[in-house]
Every structure is written in C-alpha cells, then in structure tokens.
Measured scan of single mutants.
Amino acid sequence: SKIRITWGDKTWEWDGDDEEVWKRILEWARNLGDEELWRHVKEWVDK
C-alpha cells in the first residue's frame, strides 16, 4: 500500500506502510524544516 501526504499544494507518496516507512517519513518531515508538518506526522506515527 501507499502512504500519501498532502500539505498545502504539494503531495508526496511512499510505498508501504510499515514502521520503517513511517520513520523515514518522520525524518523527511524534520529535514523539510516545517515544524507544523513534522508535528502532524508525529501524531500519525504515535497512533
């Protein structure tokens, strides 16, 4: 399956939905430097 994140007018996609993928997404969000996006992603990961 895919994980799709839409933020503003951008959309990103990742293949898979296991823990490793979420770790990569969390790292990606942090590297993007958008605090609010990172917080949202972290909330999803922690669920």
Results as ranks from 00 to 15, higher is better:
Trp28Phe: 08
Trp28Ala: 01
Ile5His: 01
Leu32Gly: 05
Trp28Leu: 03
Asp18Thr: 11
Val45Thr: 06
Glu35Ile: 05
Asp17Trp: 07
Leu26Tyr: 07
Trp12Glu: 04
Val21Arg: 02
Lys47His: 14
Gly33Met: 07
Glu13Arg: 01
Ser1Ala: 13
Trp7His: 04
Lys23Ile: 08
Glu13Asn: 03
Trp14Val: 03
His40Ile: 13
Glu43Arg: 04
Trp14Met: 03
Lys10His: 12
Ile5Glu: 00
Arg24Gln: 14
His40Arg: 11
Val41Ser: 00
Asp34Thr: 03
Lys42Glu: 14
Lys47Met: 15
Gly16Gln: 10
Lys42Asn: 15
Glu27Ile: 09
Lys23Tyr: 08
His40Thr: 13
Trp22Met: 11
Glu35Val: 06
Arg30Ser: 14
Gly33Tyr: 05
Gly33Ser: 07
Lys23Pro: 05
Ile3His: 05
Asp46Lys: 05
Lys2Cys: 06
Lys42Ile: 15
Arg30Gly: 10
Arg30Gln: 13
Arg30Ala: 14
Ser1Lys: 15
Glu13Ser: 07
Ile3Phe: 05
Gly33Leu: 05
Thr11Tyr: 12
Lys42Gln: 15
Glu19Thr: 12
Glu27Phe: 05
Gly33Phe: 06
Ala29Gly: 03
Arg24Val: 13
Lys23Trp: 04
Glu27Thr: 09
Gly16Cys: 08
Asp46Phe: 02
Glu13Asp: 05
His40Phe: 15
Glu19Phe: 11
Gly16Ile: 10
Glu20Ser: 13
Asp9Met: 02
His40Leu: 13
Trp38Gln: 11
Leu37Val: 07
Lys10Cys: 08
Trp22Pro: 05
Val41His: 00
Gly8Gln: 11
Lys23Cys: 03
Trp12Gly: 06
Trp14His: 01
Trp14Gly: 03
Trp12Ala: 05
Trp44Tyr: 08
Asp17Gln: 09
Trp12Lys: 06
Glu35Pro: 10
Trp22Thr: 07
Asp9Trp: 02
Ser1His: 13
Ile25Leu: 05
Ile25Asp: 00
Ile3Leu: 06
Lys10Trp: 07
Arg30Val: 10
Gly8His: 11
Lys23Gln: 13
Trp38Val: 15
Trp38Pro: 01
Asp18Val: 08
Asp18Cys: 01
Asn31Thr: 14
Val41Trp: 02
Gly33Arg: 04
Trp44Glu: 07
Lys10Ser: 12
Glu43Thr: 03
Arg39Leu: 15
Val45Phe: 15
Trp22Arg: 09
Asn31Phe: 07
Asp46Gly: 02
Thr6Lys: 08
Val45Gly: 08
Asp18Lys: 06
Ile5Val: 09
Ile3Gly: 01
Glu36Ile: 06
Gly8Trp: 07
Glu36Ala: 07
Leu37Gln: 01
Asp34Tyr: 05
Glu36Lys: 05
Trp28Pro: 00
Lys10Thr: 10
Thr11Cys: 12
Glu27Gly: 04
Asp46Ile: 04
Trp7Met: 05
Asp34Met: 08
Val41Asn: 00
Asp46Trp: 02
Ile5Trp: 05
Arg24Trp: 06
Glu43Phe: 04
Leu26His: 04
Ile3Trp: 04
Ile3Lys: 02
Glu36Met: 05
Asp17Ala: 13
Lys23Asn: 13
Thr6Glu: 12
Trp14Ala: 02
Ile5Phe: 15
Trp22His: 10
Lys47Ser: 15
Asp17Glu: 10
Asn31Lys: 11
Lys2Asn: 10
Gly16Pro: 08
Glu27Pro: 00
Trp22Gly: 06
Trp7Thr: 01
Glu35Lys: 05
Glu20Ala: 13
Trp14Phe: 12
Trp28Val: 02
Ile25Arg: 00
Trp22Asn: 05
Val45Ser: 14
Ser1Gln: 12
Trp12Ser: 03
Glu27Arg: 03
His40Pro: 03
Trp7Asp: 01
Lys23Phe: 08
Leu26Arg: 05
Glu36Gly: 04
Asp34His: 08
Arg4Thr: 14
Gly8Cys: 06
Asp17Thr: 09
Trp44Met: 13
Ile5Gln: 00
Asp9Asn: 10
Asp17Tyr: 05
Gly16Lys: 13
Arg39Ser: 12
Leu37Ile: 10
Arg39Val: 13
Ser1Trp: 07
Asp34Ala: 08
Ile5Asp: 00
Val41Glu: 00
Arg24Tyr: 07
Lys2Gln: 10
Asp15Lys: 06
Ile3Met: 02
Ala29His: 02
Glu35Leu: 08
Thr11Gly: 02
Val45Tyr: 15
Ser1Gly: 14
Trp12Ile: 06
Trp12Cys: 00
Lys42His: 08
Glu19Gly: 11
Trp12Leu: 04
Leu32Tyr: 15
Asp46Thr: 03
Glu43Cys: 12
Ile5Lys: 00
Asp9Phe: 02
Gly8Asn: 10
Glu19Val: 14
Gly33Glu: 12
His40Val: 15
Asp9Ile: 01
Thr6Gln: 10
Val21Leu: 06
Val41Ile: 14
Glu27His: 09
Trp44Asn: 01
Lys42Trp: 14
Lys2Tyr: 12
Asp15Gln: 10
Leu32Ala: 13
Thr11Pro: 01
Leu32Glu: 11
Val21Gln: 03
Lys23His: 09
Trp12Asn: 04
Lys10Asp: 11
